[in-house]
Computed example of a mutant assay.
Amino acid sequence: MTSQQTITFLRRMLRIARTEIAAVSALFIVALGVMTFVEVADDVTGTEGQAFDQAVLTWMQPAPGDPRGPWWLKEAAADLTSLGGISVLTLFALIAIAFLLIQRKRLSALLLVLGLAGGVALSEGLKDLFSRQRPPSDFQAVDTLNASFPSGHALLSTVFYLTLGVMLTRAFPRTHLKAFVLGAAMLIALLIGLTRVYLGAHWASDVFAGWCAGAAWAMALWLVAYAIGRRQAVRDKGLHDEVLPPEPMADTPPAVIGE
């Protein structure tokens, strides 16, 4: 390849990156999430990774079973952590799916179902694969069920709230509103993950791995929706999101001269 061909190729790639910045960013998040998860999974079996997890847990709970901070902080953490539970996420998902179907957003509804169902399968499969023990029961301020790595609450909350946030950005034309919705979705997932460590339900690396896997899965689903949307723009066939006509404007009475 000559220098001129190289320059032409780089210019073409730059033009594609500019026009497809959202897709490129999503693909980057998928790759980064997968690579980081693999790195964390490798570290949890090592001495340094276990020492880090133990140090974080000990700082969060100087006395086992008594999280750091005032009593109301523990109550707030218990409330927030339930937002990542499967029961709460299923309820929110049913409401969101019903709303999307009413709006004739059939593709978005299907992707939300696949996102949550796939997230549950991914979480349970990885837990069975690694079979990591949770923190000692003396540190656990909430009830736990299965293996520790990765955190199911962190993974599923990232998948659901991030996917829902990305879908909601389509309803807002302004960039700062899109950023607010995405920021709120990420904040909820962040808080849920932190409460799992604070309450002694997970090691810190469990939560970090859950965030990485959840973000990668959510962005992979978005890429699928993006590709289908691009295809539907050319061929109006198959499952897609319909655009509803705007609501008719109410008739305005004519102005009276002299008002």
Rank of each mutant, 00 (worst) to 15 (best):
T6S: 09
R11A: 08
R12G: 13
M13H: 13
I16N: 11
R18C: 11
I21V: 06
V24I: 12
A26W: 09
L27G: 12
L32V: 15
V34F: 12
F37N: 01
D42P: 07
D43F: 04
G46E: 15
T47M: 13
E48R: 12
A51Y: 01
V56E: 00
W59P: 02
P62C: 02
D79E: 09
L80D: 01
L80H: 01
S82K: 08
G85F: 01
L89K: 14
T90R: 05
A93R: 03
I95S: 06
R104C: 05
S108M: 05
L112Y: 02
G115R: 00
G119E: 00
P135H: 00
D138R: 09
F139P: 02
F139A: 06
L145H: 15
A147C: 13
T158E: 02
Y161L: 14
L162Q: 05
T163Y: 04
R170Q: 14
R170F: 11
P173R: 15
T175I: 14
L177C: 01
K178C: 02
A179K: 15
A179H: 08
F180I: 09
A185R: 01
A189T: 10
V197L: 06
Y198L: 07
A201E: 13
W203M: 08
D206G: 04
A209K: 04
A209E: 02
A209T: 03
A209W: 01
C212R: 06
C212E: 11
A220W: 02
A220F: 14
G229Q: 06
K237V: 15
V243W: 07
P245A: 13
E247N: 15
E247S: 14
T252K: 09
I257S: 13
